[in-house]
Amino acid sequence: MADTPPPGPDAAQTLRLEGVYKSYGIGTPAELEVLHGIDLSLRPGEFAALIGPSGGGKSTLLNLIGLLDRPTAGRLFVTGREAGVLGDTELTRLRGRNIGFVFQYHYLLPAFTAVENVMMPILAARGRPDDAMRKRAGMLLDKVGLTPWRDHMANDLSGGQQQRVAVARALAMDPALVLADEPTGNLDTKSADGVFDVLREVNESSGTTFLIVTHDPRLARRCDRIIELVDGNIVSDRPNAAEAPGNR
């Protein structure tokens, strides 16, 4: 994935942030600026790690990128569309179609089976269940190696299995960008490696862009690019030499 980005400024970029600030508790004595003018862009197919000390603003940044929250200042483009000008409904749609989430704690819906959890984003978008979305969910579960567990209730799965279901669910709408906030932070090494392998495979097979928050240097080293966020500033952003494409 070392292609130079095609011409055309916005559309070519999966994500672009221009001078993004975020403060919490605005207007209260506890007002706190967490992000101090972030500039960042991700090209299609990039597999980037976001690292940095706890409390540095990684989750906050991911929420902004994921359109779950709005920046206090600055501009944010997802697949070339500026988020700041969109209303809540359009923002929800943009999020549903273009962004997949994987959170640290495997947030599956416990009332649904594995395959139903994977179907949910498509179901919410289309309104009614159908065979096509069931088939796609089954295919994605197969990709993460969970076909034998497809009809198990979410809570009956192990942590690693649940997180793989969450990965499959994040891919349900075939998003341009998958955001993972410490997706392996809660797993043992073996399960963590399994989940990480799945992310990497999807990235390589379908060219989906990934931004992964991780505390694990071992995993960060397996990414193409490492972005370090300290106290709300990007202090380093470099390609990962060890993981140069093609020589893995």
Binding site: D88, R97, Y107, P110, A124
Partner: peptide, 16 residues
Amino acid sequence: SKEIGILRAMGTSRAQ
């Protein structure tokens, strides 16, 4: 509330 948050994150609208 967490499940609702997840539903919203995966593209479920407020109206839904």
